[in-house]
Design a protein around this nucleic acid. Sequence first.
DNA 1: CGAATCACGAGAACTTGATTATCGTCCGTC
DNA 2: GACGGACGATAATCAAGTTCTCGTGATTCG
Lengths: 234, 234
Amino acid sequence: MSKEEPDTAANGADAPSWREQAVARSLDSARTRAENRVQRFLDAALELMAEGDRKDFTVQEVVERSGQSLRSFYQYFGGKHELLLGLFEESVRTTTAQLAKRIDSKGGEEPVDRLHTFVVEYYKMCQPPRKGKGREALPSPILVRFALQLLTAHPAESSRAFVPLVSLFDELLLAAIDAGAIRSDLNRQAVTGPVLQVIMFNTFSSAIVDGADDLSAQDGAEALWDVVVNGLGA
Amino acid sequence: MSKEEPDTAANGADAPSWREQAVARSLDSARTRAENRVQRFLDAALELMAEGDRKDFTVQEVVERSGQSLRSFYQYFGGKHELLLGLFEESVRTTTAQLAKRIDSKGGEEPVDRLHTFVVEYYKMCQPPRKGKGREALPSPILVRFALQLLTAHPAESSRAFVPLVSLFDELLLAAIDAGAIRSDLNRQAVTGPVLQVIMFNTFSSAIVDGADDLSAQDGAEALWDVVVNGLGA
DNA sequence: CGAATCACGAGAACTTGATTATCGTCCGTC
DNA sequence: GACGGACGATAATCAAGTTCTCGTGATTCG
């Protein structure tokens, strides 16, 4: 890759303004084609974990399912972890959008109510699907599983992926503080992580304590909210 | 050449004389011999993760280090996960004992103080080793990593392994409730998991939020305690 | 037009790590 | 002194990720 102009080839991702229009044509086709291919891999992976209670998938499976080749896969992704990261980012975006929507519709007037809705709804989304009802395509626990892998293996990347969710939470938190419902002496940065983490990985809590599973998702969520807001203290 | 006598070569580093003496000499029944072998595998694994910042080890390494054979390994362990489970159980026991000791010495008069000590000290133990000081053999973050693997892959076994820690926490919690410092309307079962989990996996919190690392272990621990006890509410 | 290039599919090959199988030896027992 | 079990050494197998090689159709460029 040494014989082309430095204008188009060097950037694959961000850098929106540039002089896109000028080279829109040639670049556009190449880019959309690439994006399309990437998306096909992502979709295939999503499909794989949606079906069955697949806890994991292999690169091979993704490749086959996507109708593309291993070669292409490694051309577009640096490795499986990049695919995971892609899935995860997308999942966080989706989840956050859905949360925002639910909060706008169900969240009450008060900022605390909106925060409450965030906690309860996010809790539910991270819960493993209860036996009985077929959910929509909500691969939430899968997301959680990946979150773990990514958080341990690639903390920096995952924190980038978490940004939308963290931002939403932070907005709600700030609003609730301004409204006087939440302590104003909090270090928001320092509090956001633990709160999101305790919700997201709530599944583990039950596993740690063994027989602590007897709450419905709704009750568990409300109980957690209670503790988060009021604390353990008398 | 790896055919030394098993008495001296197995333990190189620190001085967990453990049960070697007993075994080496008098009792040599089949059971103690077996336990000795199992223990050598465990020690070897512990050793491996103590040295370097090894995040993981292979079965081969453990086998070599322990001076035993692959065959024996699979004779005594159903697989790597059983070794992990063994390590984890032992680690929880050790950690719990150490916690109990610290609480007895540093914990104050009041039950809340003892609970406070639990939270703060356990927090520190689960923290990745700060650069600067050479710690004793406290493979805590490694423990945490394993906890994750086990919690996701073998929830039942891990909850069994957690029993000592959970019991200790529950005792302290109950005492604090009786003393009137902690809400009496709590479902202890339902609260223990989240609290332990948020302490143990605190590392993730920083990774989720990105730039939330600027607290010392002590400050982070106190901040978390504050939130746990007082909650977010105004 | 023809050659170079490229993107891509098909699939083999390589790598690491777990797990299993084979073989031979040592050691205590009968 | 033979037998059987425990054990070490080592090879074989299996799975999954990753890389490599070849071939082909399309595009480009001289």
